[in-house]
Each structure stands twice: as structure tokens, then as C-alpha cells.
Nucleic acid binder design. Sequence first.
RNA 1: GCCGGAGUGGCGAAAUUGGUAGACGCGCUGGAUUCAAAAUCCAGUUCUGGCAACAGAGUGUCGGUUCGAGUCCGACCUCCGGCACCA
Length: 869
Amino acid sequence: MTQQNYNPAEIESRVQQQWRRDDVFAVTEDPSREKFYCLSMLPYPSGALHMGHVRNYTIGDVISRYHRMLGKNVLQPMGWDAFGLPAENAAIKNKTAPASWTYQNIEHMRSQLDRMGFGYDWSREVTTCKPDYYRWEQLMFTRLMKKGMAYRKDAEVNWDPVDQTVLANEQVVDGRGWRSGAVVERKSIPQWFLKITDYAEELLRELDALEGWPDAVKIMQRNWIGRSEGCEFEMKVCDEHGAPHPDGLGVRVFTTRPDTSFGMTYAVLAPEHELVARITAAEQAAAVAAFVDQAASASEEDRMAEGGALEKRGVFTGAYLFNPFTEKPVPLYLADYVLMGYGTGAIMAVPGQDQRDWDFARVHDLPIVRTVQPPESWEGEAWVEDGPAINSDWLDGMEVAQAKEAATAWLEKQGMGERKVNFRLRDWGVSRQRYWGCPIPVIYCPDCGAVPVPEDQLPVLLPEDVEFMGVRSPIKADPDWRKTTCPGCGGAAERETDTFDTFMESSWYMHRYACPGADAMVDDRVNYWFPIDQYVGGIEHAILHLMYFRFYHKVMRDEGLVHCDEPATRLLCQGMVVADTYYREEADGSVHWFNPADVDVDRDEKGKPLGATLHEDGQPVMVGGVEKMSKSKNNGVDPQSMVDRYGADTVRLFSVSDSPANQSLEWSDSGVEGAFRYLKRLWSQVMKHVEAGPYDRLDTGALTGQQKDIRRMLHDTIAKVGDDIARRYTFNTAIAAIMELTNHLSRFNDDSPEGGAVRDEAWKGIVRLLAPITPHICDELWHRLGESGPLMDAAWPEVDESARQRSSVQVVVQVNGKVRARLEMPAGSDKDAVKAAALAEANVQRHLADGAIRKVIHIPDRLLNIVVA
RNA sequence: GCCGGAGUGGCGAAAUUGGUAGACGCGCUGGAUUCAAAAUCCAGUUCUGGCAACAGAGUGUCGGUUCGAGUCCGACCUCCGGCACCA
């Protein structure tokens, strides 16, 4: 035996050296070729690659390499989402500056990505914390300021009263600051916003055209934008007898159900509503003040999440609103299920037709009047569906749509209100009170106000060489950095010390990839590459990032920078990487988590897990279930150690072989072993084949049945793999089909010249089908099979439709829906032929017994169902 | 609480448009090879009954539509993602 064993380390290093030497992943714009822009979400440089990265980038690389083999001009770039909170935390912990920590991580992670064999054009690398990147973001912001698209207003933040700092939501644990432990306060400070709401209508409308996006993402975005058509109208504040408020105050409410106005039995203001103080009656003042206080301390999400407490959380103001429909006063409450950020911050409450209003009314003993007729048996709940209006005077008998129209028209005629479209979507707050971010390019002048930094003074540089102690941003602490002169009047002025939300950087990095080195935000090269043909990233970005980047793209379009309306035509959201967890509870009640690598699992004779023991001491540990890989549960598997042990091809193969790309992947050491075993088998079998060669050219004219079977399976597999990779994203089934073909091929012991030629065709097919997934071993085998040139530029195998035709098929025979026989029939047999063959089967006869045949259903080439009485 | 997703053998999963439930892999069992082991190769493996042929049950729970439901409809349970300052 002269064949060598599979040696991934040696093969991968050699193949990767070649790629580097020939710079094979660098691409240029070439209008004569079809382009394919494959983008994976850029990583935060947290220190080292984790399995989530490996999976994400393997998926992107597989898709890229597949399209490259189809002959397209493929761009696959990579970069670093380098600003953000973790760098500040690491800086405090390690007493380094966030910048140097970040740059070190980038160096390390870049080399890890290369070791995986991902085909990136590094000449296009983007590092978002570098001034040559963020300067354009600053420039864009100053333009948006001038357009009125960026504006400043007060907004709430989490305030840590001990550390005297603003906290991110993540830094608030059970209502307390994570470092100080102090109870967090809500504080209102001026912040910058981008008017994403100006684009609400377009962001919503164009979702319909995104056929290549998952429905789940589109539905979530649709609901997030939350368009609702309704009516806004004013009601006068009055007392319990209907006498108007002495100041003539009124409250504007928004409703999507003006048709139910006759059923309004109370009204509600958000606790932050501006009129609360003015309308509250003296005897209710204390209760109202206490309620407002309590509501102010909770974030919106907490307020909505209080579940059981929800219906209780409201207080009567002592004031009333005059219902113009019934011409009667209704009591006015405060409740925190009404949000100031939506509509007018005030609602008319109609418990008969709204479940939350119903719940609130029951607790506060408020009257309930149904104004839409529910079905007869309906009770104990609001009726929110269609039906004829009742108890509604002149609306009675109308269906909901008709009654809405009539009520709205009436309000308009009375001059009390008008039609209104409301969005749940709110403007994008981009200010962060942190250091490690892009400085917001604004100067505050006592005379001229907020002035954008002029273009010739950009970028506003963030100092990188700083002492970072954690509590206060270094640029806030440094009066010299802040000090400047006003570009308008030349007087003394101060810089903005807030930085941008990091979603700002991640909203346009994909545009910058398309034009490296451009002396502008982008140049016309962007229009060669855009729109992105395939975007790949985690489902956790379904709303925020994927909405912001759509918005930002449209903003860039309206600045004349890009031509298309939507930035990405196809989107794949990959699932998380999860693993088993193991733990022990210590005597003091604390929990200690053990890494799966340090635990042995005990099984019964069927392989069912019985328990687990720690490798080190042989004592049992508790099995904690399968969870997302994380530091806190100590269930992460280090990709580096896996690559060292098995090679990049095995890790790539496993990370896409065990479940579909859009579902979670359960890490399994033995699954990795299985992937490794497959590659070893592939290697040895191809080597065996090569040694028995050379082979004649395939003559498809003179093949035996078995030879035809192999060819049919090969060409079925070619068709399936292409479809699975590009359309379905089910790499797992593509790999299963390739493995199945490999298994059949290994049992195909045909030493004739034709047999060898068939086998040769099949191995060369398999090697190309696997090339996008395991590029290194396939490149090596490709050359050993006698082919020349880089495999990544070899043509994707073509499907020979004539090889796929079958002369006979298996038809299932059912009696009353239960399988009773399987028949081998000539393809295309008609119903009578199949029926005759079925009736000749003893087992079919037996189940027909003496029942009369009522019906026979025939699905050609698949199934025959005989229905008997 | 609201929005979205998932639930199928001992395990990861497959079944693409309503038509054979369990492809492929892991694990396990038996065998070959070996002084022995590892590695490798071969066979078996949803559950129950049966030597077998075969029969019955079976896709989170309960109900429905259909000749036929993992797939469609209604109600529910559990787990996961997001909820605007983690990225």
C-alpha cells in the first residue's frame, strides 16, 4: 500500500499558502461578469473566535465558494465592529486602553479566520474604530443635521447615582447598577436622534418586495413598525357633571376603533402626560403623585412585563373627559399600560372591545358596555372581532368598517378630530454617554447653539492613548479635549462628548467594503456590488440592526450615494450554537459549572444517558440541559482546539452538517469525530481509486444497470446539493446526500473499464460538491485525481438529466390509508395498471376482505389508496 | 406582557407542494481483524407482540378538516430569540 493517510494539518497549510501566494480572494469590479456579493455580519473583536462565529462564517464561505464555482465574480469581505462596551469593561479589568485591547484582539481573530480557510478579500477590511472609517459617518451626520434629519431632544437614560454615570440596559441587574449596586434612576438628558420615522412608510412597504428574506424577520419588522390607521380627536376635560374645566383644557386621544366610541366608559393618560398635574383633583393629588413616581422608576419593558400586576396599576385623577358621542363625562385615569411614546399618550378606553381595557375595568369596577354584538355564547371577555354595532345610537347595525368610517366622518365634520396614521416605530436615539465610540461631530456655542463640525475639520478624533478607569469617559473628563471654537462666530465653544450608538457603524460597513480607500463615504464602485446578494447573520439581529441598516441605506440613497432602494436581496439568519451544561451546587448554595470537555457521560446499554461524572475526581455532576454556549455556563467549546485536533475542514464540515443553517446547532464531540471519520474515509477511498487508475473517458452509451444506478444517484445528488446550498440553506441534507452517494460508491465493486470511468466521474463530482464546505481536502484530492488549476475555479458539476431518468418506480399501495404493499412498476404506469397489480397482491387482498371498493386514489408513480367500506 | 420561532427514535436530525415517518450522522448491540486494544470494516437498531411472515401503536397535548395530516385549521403546554443603551 502506497497511499498516505489523511493529514489535515499538512494539507491545509499547503493549500492556504497557495491561496495567499496567488491572492486568490482579491476581487475587482468587472461589469462584464455577473457579480455576487456575499456578506456575513462582522464580528465584535471580543478576543477569540467562538463557535457562533465559526458557524456564521462557514455558512457565508460555503455560499461564496459555491457561487464562485458557478463562475461569478464573488466579493466576500470581512471587518471588525470595533467600538463598544466590552472593550471598556476589559480595559478596566486589565488596566489597558480600550484601543490597544481591541487591536490585539483583531490581530488574533484575523489569524484564526485565516486558519479556518475563509475566502476573504482582506484588502477591503473595515475596522470601525479607525478614523478613516468613522470620519465619513461623522460627515454624513453633519449633513443629516443640516437636512433636519438629525435632531436633539430630551430622553431617558439609566442613571447610576453612586457612580454618577449612565448605564446601558445590560448593566442594570434587577434594577441596580452592576458595579455600584445602587438602585438605578431614570434621568432625562438631551440626546441626538435620527428621524427613522420619516422612512416608516417605505420601510414597511418594501418589506413586501424582499422575497429572499425569512418571513419571521419580515413579520417582526412589520409589527415593530406597527402602522395603524385610526382617528385622533379631542375631548374636553370636565367635572363629574360635565361642566368644562375652568381653563378649557382638552385631551387628544388616538384610537383605531372610533366605531366603538359609544362604549367608552373611561379614559386613560400615560403617567408622563403633560396635563397630569393640571387636571388632577386635589383629593387625588397624593395618590396620583405616588403613582407617577412609581411608574417613572421602571423602564417601559418592565412596565409591560409586570403581568399580573398590570391591571392593578392605575389611579383615578379625579377629572373626567366629555365623551362627544354619548355627551356624558367619563372618569379619567392614569395607567402605565398607556405609553407616552405612542400616539398621543392618551386613550379612550372601551372595555367591551379591548381586552386590556376590559381587565382594567374589572379591577377598577368601571362599567362595561358592548358596542359590537358578540356571538351568543361569548361572555367574560372583550369581543375584538367583527360584528354589527349595538348600543351606539346612529351607528347601530353597521359593520365595524362602515361604523369606523361613519364615526370618523362625524368627528371631522364636528371639527373635533381627523384621520391619522400612527406608527409604533420611534426615532433612533444615537447618543451614548460612553468613551469607546465614534465622537458625535457637534459643537455647542453659547450664541449659535448646536453647530455641526465643518467638513474640513473632520474627523473629530477620539484619543486612543488614554487612562481608562471605567466610571467616566476620558473625553468627558478632559476639559482640553472639549474646548474649541465655534465654527460660526469664532467664539469659545465646547464639543459634544457623547459618542454614537455602535449600530451607526454597523449600518454602513457593507457599503464601505465595496469601495476601499475611497476619498468619500463611498464611490461609484458601491453600485457595482450593491445590492448585497446574500447577507448571513444571527436571528437576534432580526429587528434592530436589520432595520437600521435598511434605513441607513435609504438615507444614503437620498444623498445620491447608492442607487438601489434595498441593501440586501437575500437574508439568512443562522441559529445559535448550543451545548450540554453540567454543574454542582456547592455547600454555600453557589453553582459551579463544568465544561463538557471535562465531563464523562454514563449510558445504559441502549446509549441512553444515565448521569455524568467529572473526569478529574470521578464524582457525579448534575446534567443541566442544552443551552447557548456561554462563559457563564462554561459550556463553550474552543474552535481553536478543535482545529488543532481535527483540522479546519472537519470543523467546517461539522458546523454545517448537523442541522439546517437557520436552526440551532447542538455541539457534539462525537459528531465532530463522525465528520472527521467521513473525511478520512473519503481520502482513503479516493486514493484507492487513484492508485487503480488511470481511467478511460466515460462512454454513457454502453452501461450496465448498476453503472446507470451510480450515475443516476450522482446526478440526483448534484441537482440536490446545488438547490440545498443556494435556495434552501440546508447544508445538512446536502451533506447527507453526498455521504449516501459515497457509501454507495464504496460498495460499487466494478473493475471493468466502464465501471472505472463511472467511478471516476462520481469521485470528481463528489470532490467538487464538497469543495465549498471542505475546500482544503477537496483541492488536494482534485489534483490527485489528475485535474489541474485551483479547485475553487473549477466549474460546478453539471446535471446530466438523461442520467436521472428511471425506468421503474416504487408505488405504495394503501388500503384505507394504511400501507399494505409496495410495488415495483414501470414509470408512468396508469391507474388501471397499478390497480390491477395491487389487487394481485395477497396482503392487499387480505385487507380488502369482502368490503366493497368505494374509491381508488392514484398519485402517479407514488401511491395508490384503495378505500373500502 | 407584546412580537417571532421551535417541539419527530436513546441523541442531532430527514420527510422541499397534504401522499411510504425516521434519509444521513452519532450512540448502542453483535461479528470480522488483533496476543490484546485503538483504528478500520461488515451487519442490526422507533416502540410493543411474533422464530418469521406480519399486526398494532407512534411526530409536545386535546379537538377538527381529509380517501390520506409531522405538514392544514382551532385551543392549550413547554423551551428559545427580540423588545429600542449588549452587539
